[in-house]
Write a protein that binds this DNA or RNA. Sequence first.
DNA 1: TAATTGGTTAGCCATGGAGCTAACTATAGG
DNA 2: CCTATAGTTAGCTCCATGGCTAACCAATTA
Lengths: 134, 134
Amino acid sequence: MANQLSQLDQVFAALADPTRRAIVMRLCAGEASVGELAEPFEMALPSFMKHIHVLETCGLLQSEKEGRVRTCRLSPEALLSAEDWFQHQRAIWEARLDRFEAYVMKLKKERAAAKRPSKTTEKTTNKPSKRKGA
Amino acid sequence: MANQLSQLDQVFAALADPTRRAIVMRLCAGEASVGELAEPFEMALPSFMKHIHVLETCGLLQSEKEGRVRTCRLSPEALLSAEDWFQHQRAIWEARLDRFEAYVMKLKKERAAAKRPSKTTEKTTNKPSKRKGA
DNA sequence: TAATTGGTTAGCCATGGAGCTAACTATAGG
DNA sequence: CCTATAGTTAGCTCCATGGCTAACCAATTA
């Protein structure tokens, strides 16, 4: 678990760099050699290789060398574990909002019960639009 | 759009730090003052404030000061946009896998058609277990 | 075998990020 | 008014990161 967190550090740090995100995006479309991957970037190969190595270290990328060409492919587990982090946070966040909303509803009801005849005209609580991947 | 990417840089960089991730996690459970947020960490306040500022700069956190206490809350848009990035990549990745699978199926069928009488007994393609939030 | 291609290693430099202390501002409470 | 509280500003280290060049393998290919 503590190890997990440290892996998250690495994955997020890796994805914080636009070059590396581009590599990941490229690899989502299929495997490629280092040369093919490097070609769109105006960067010396050794610099580029560092990015490859970072991605490989944090588990986002796998590669193997055949002859003199190294082929890279995405290894999705790390990507998925990072995505899971977001989903987990969002779950907590949304649960809290639901609880809060319930609380507000209860308050409203109580207040309405307290001064029965007068209608309490409050602004509608802005509930934050449920999202797709929920 | 180019601005969007730069925002992603910042968000991922922000989340690459365990302290900041912890802050975000804490704020998912509800708003808190700087002091409350800082309390679990063995870190000088100015250092901690930098983290707060980083989170605020990249749009993950909002804060306002009343009297001498600054209250922080999560502002979910940035978090969601980062999560969207993952979902987008995964969509592409999975689409490719599906295409690949279809391709393998086609190959199988063709091969089966070629040597009609013999049943080609191949191992099942290991399809990568559809995930929850799909 | 010689030259080219594809990648790798080594080492340098500049920048930025995470941490610290010290000193300061401003509100709250006595 | 005085003190304690809650943040803030300024300025300093240290080291990790991203980039470079130069030189170096090791497979292909001519």
